[in-house]
């Protein structure tokens, strides 16, 4: 009769366990290093100009070697351009996702739409800028303006929104839909009052992440919104600035004061994206689906 050893695992197994633990921790540390160094560098360099003047002044009448000036015009530009891009692409994106999940049902049109959304996800950001430049500015003859930038950003944002919303709608259990139909509720009401509220949290999170993603885009704005040093509150008239462009513009200048401004701009941009992510989490927490 064999005896069972209950004294604990053997030395070799303990060693294997520890080794795996060490490896996992090391991998985690490796993954965190770039993030931490990035944050550290940006905060260290950006803190120098992270002051009130930076947030309340534009770059108007700041000469080549002058210190001072700020990114107010760029912040306004980014908020307006990204806001308009969201207004364009969120409704279209969510409605497309509803069609794909609720009505498309794997039909030919649905498959074609899914295919093109996939293709659009892979479109490099500079191409969307080129497209809007060629179509909106060169062909239709509009001037450079913030809205042109919004169009380019919405091209980038749309596929991300469709994808996120589609995945969330797919997660809604079919039982809920069937229960609603069984009570005699028409399809559109089922979608509006059963499916969408259930998927709401997920959709909001996905949308926020899409917004955060386009906020840092430089390439599509390079050829659509031009640059300016003065405040322009009207996205439909004249050139605007945006935060990524501000960083790009200032970082290539030779003098240190400009480079400091670029770092402060980068820090502001990171904070914006972080705030959006936090807001997404907050909304997700406030609005938990009713537990069953």
């Amino acid at each position: 009769m064999s005896t069972v050893n209950l004294a604990g695992p053997s030395g070799l197994r303990k060693f294997k366990d520890k080794l795996a633990l060490v490896l996992v921790c090391a991998a985690f540390a490796l993954a965190v290093i770039p993030l931490v160094t990035l944050l550290y560098t940006v905060i260290k360099n950006g803190a120098k100009r992270f002051d009130m003047e930076f947030f309340t002044h534009s770059m108007n009448a700041i000469g080549g070697r002058d210190a001072g000036g700020g990114a107010y015009h760029a912040i306004i530009g980014t908020i307006e351009q990204v806001g308009l891009a969201s207004v364009i692409s969120i409704p279209i994106g969510v409605l497309t996702a509803i069609y794909l999940v609720e009505y498309g049902g794997g039909g030919r049109l649905a498959r074609v739409v899914t295919f093109f959304v996939d293709v659009m996800t892979g479109v490099p950001s500079i191409v969307s800028g080129l497209f809007v430049f060629a179509f909106w500015i060169a062909l239709l003859g509009f001037e450079y303006m913030g809205f042109a930038g919004s169009l380019a950003l919405s091209v980038l944002m749309l596929p991300t929104v469709v994808r996120a919303a589609e995945e969330m709608l797919k997660l809604v259990p079919n039982d809920l839909r069937e229960a609603s139909y069984a009570l005699g509720v028409p399809r559109w009401r089922t979608i509006c009052f059963v499916v969408l509220p259930t998927a709401f949290t997920g959709i909001i999170t996905g949308v926020m992440l899409a917004v955060a993603r386009v906020m840092g885009e430089t390439a599509p704005l390079l050829m659509t919104v031009f640059v300016t040093t003065a405040i322009n509150n009207d996205p439909f008239k004249g050139p605007q600035m945006s935060l990524p462009l501000f960083v790009w513009d200032q970082a290539q200048l030779p003098q240190q004061v400009a480079i400091d401004r670029a770092w402060a701009g980068a820090l502001t941009l990171i904070l914006f994206v972080m705030l959006l992510n936090l807001a997404a989490r907050l909304i997700a927490r406030l609005r938990k689906p009713v537990s069953r």
Partner: peptide
């Protein structure tokens, strides 16, 4: 929350300036 965000954005539109003095 939305209202606060909107009000914040509007308040921000009002407080910036192009006037950098003549330093």
């Amino acid at each position: 929350l939305g209202g606060v965000a909107l009000a914040g954005a509007l308040a921000l539109t009002a407080c910036g300036t192009d006037n950098n003095g003549s330093k």
